[in-house]
Each structure stands twice: as structure tokens, then as C-alpha cells.
Design a protein around this nucleic acid. Structure first.
Lengths: 153, 153
DNA sequence: GCTGAAATTTTTTTATG
DNA sequence: CATAAAAAAATTTCAGC
């Protein structure tokens, strides 16, 4: 991927609703050229999709936590992500190196809801949990650094 | 916030580029009514913005890690988020309960880049670090559960 | 706050160099 | 990849209830 595609990706990461007209102005390309590139980036999966960023306080999910999980039976097949996928309070699931096997990011309405969710996680995936509660989030969803730091391809 | 706004938020969280026409069809409102509501949700900050979701492998940042930090001097004023904000490889910063004070989510190009970033974090904020490397991400950015689980207002 | 409709702008496609 | 043109669709504004 080269310079202009990288610029387009950066712009869309910052404003997913930016118009092709604006993208064209920012990149110096014509509208059709930008259009073509964006479609190609989407098709290749470099742009995976678009999402509105939501204020979780406002929608009644003010409590965020990171839940690290570890299998009770280390010999059992590890299909925890599949077994947890139905729990929609889990926003993300990362397989990680280290003592524990996955880190989950969860959003819930209250401490009681967290307690309930943890129980469901333990039951669903036969794991033990270790939970770190988020107190506040100074920043989140910052766009990736493409002009500085990363040297793709 | 009531039912229809919640539905709009859910739809936009799943597809940040959904048109007002489609939102109108999905909610049973007129286009102008939906338009009005979306603008109001944006103005109130319930919808914070829109972002393209990017494949970090494709843009040369294939390595994700969680970095927990702890101040070297517990008596010093805690302005770590400000002091780290210039490091664009930090995608998110959460203040957390527990032994450590913040969890950072970082994206870098390589192990060496991670090593370099960790050093910059320690120097910039006068903290010690504990790093958990992400091996794979079964899922991420799942939309919040508004029709099930949460009971806003 | 909603509807319906007009005015404007953007998106999308197609063609040509 | 640029330009151009045309058609389709979406955004935005506004009168009226």
C-alpha cells in the first residue's frame, strides 16, 4: 500500500463519514480516483467497515472492565472465543501471551451486571477470571499513526 | 434516551455509513425525523463520531499489546495520560482499579518497535511497565447490546 | 417532534483519453 | 489515473401541522 492509500485510510479512520469530495480535495486526486481506491481498500479488507463511536455512559453501559481468563482444565480444547461469542457485553476478545489465555473487554450497566456476566463467562467457557475495572478513559479509539512510526511494506 | 434513539444508535454502531434513508426505513420514521434525531444524538455527544475500522496487519502495525503502567514515584502528580498523548502508537488509555494505574492499548510494527515504545513510555511518564502481547484477536469492536442486557434510563 | 416536499449536494456509473 | 457527463441517491432545509 502506498502513500495516498495510507492517507485515505488515515482520513477515514478519523472521520468515517468523510465524503469522497473531501477525500479528493485532501489527497489531490479526482473524486472518481478516490472512489475507486476506497472501494478497493474495502474489497481488500484493509478498511473492514465503519462504525459510530458511542458514549457508553449515555446508553446505559457505564462500566467497562478487562477480564483475563484462564482455562480450568488446560488439557481441554480451547474454543473459549466461540463459547463466549453469545455474550454481547463482550466487546472484544484477544488471545494473549502470558499466564492467561485471553483478555476480554466488557461493557455492563452496573457492578451487579458485571458479577452476573463473570459468572456466565466462567460457566460458558469453563475458565477462571481475573477482572480489572476501568475507572475512567482519558482517550480511546485514537487513529493509527501512518505518517509517523509505521513503515508499511 | 428512548426506544427509537436506541435503535438508531445500534444501527449506526454496526454501520456508521448507513444512509438516513435506510435508517428511516429501519425505524419507521421519515427521513427528516431520523436526520433530526441523528444530529441531536451527535450534538448531545451520544454519538461521538464515526470511524473506519482498519486492518492493522495491512497498514504495517501487526503487533498489538496491552501495557499496564505504575508510577515509579507514587507521590508524584499523576498526569501520565497527558504525558503519553504524543505517542500515537497508543490507541487507548484507561485508568484502572488494581495494582497498576493505567492500561494502555498499543499498536506497533514489530517487537523492536514495541521495545522502543516501552522505553518512551517509561521515560515520558516515569513509570514501570508490564506488557501483555496479543497473539490474535478473535473479535473486536462488537456493537453494544442495547436491545438486550442494558436498561438505559 | 413529525411529515412531505423542494433544493442542493453527493454518490455512482459510464465513457473517453 | 484524469476529466466529463449523466443518472440515481442522499443530504439538508423548510413550510405546515
Amino acid at each position: 500500500m502506498e502513500e495516498i492509500d495510507r492517507r485515505i485510510v488515515t482520513l477515514l479512520a478519523q472521520d468515517g463519514r468523510m465524503s469522497f469530495t473531501d477525500l479528493a480535495r485532501e489527497t489531490g486526486l479526482s473524486v472518481s480516483a478516490v472512489h475507486q481506491r476506497v472501494r478497493r481498500l474495502e474489497k481488500r479488507g484493509i478498511v473492514r467497515g465503519y462504525a459510530a463511536m458511542i458514549d457508553h455512559d449515555a446508553i446505559g453501559l457505564p462500566l467497562t472492565a478487562f477480564v483475563s481468563i484462564k482455562p480450568i482444565d488446560p488439557a481441554a480444547p480451547d474454543d473459549a472465543p466461540d463459547r463466549l461469542a453469545h455474550l454481547h457485553q463482550i466487546e472484544a476478545c484477544h488471545s494473549v501471551a502470558g499466564d492467561e489465555s485471553y483478555i476480554l473487554k466488557v461493557r455492563v450497566a452496573s457492578p451487579v451486571a458485571l458479577e452476573d456476566l463473570l459468572q456466565q463467562i466462567r460457566e460458558s467457557a469453563n475458565v477462571s477470571t481475573r477482572t480489572t475495572v476501568v475507572l475512567s478513559t482519558p482517550y480511546e479509539h485514537r487513529p493509527p499513526p501512518l505518517g509517523d512510526g509505521a513503515v508499511p511494506e
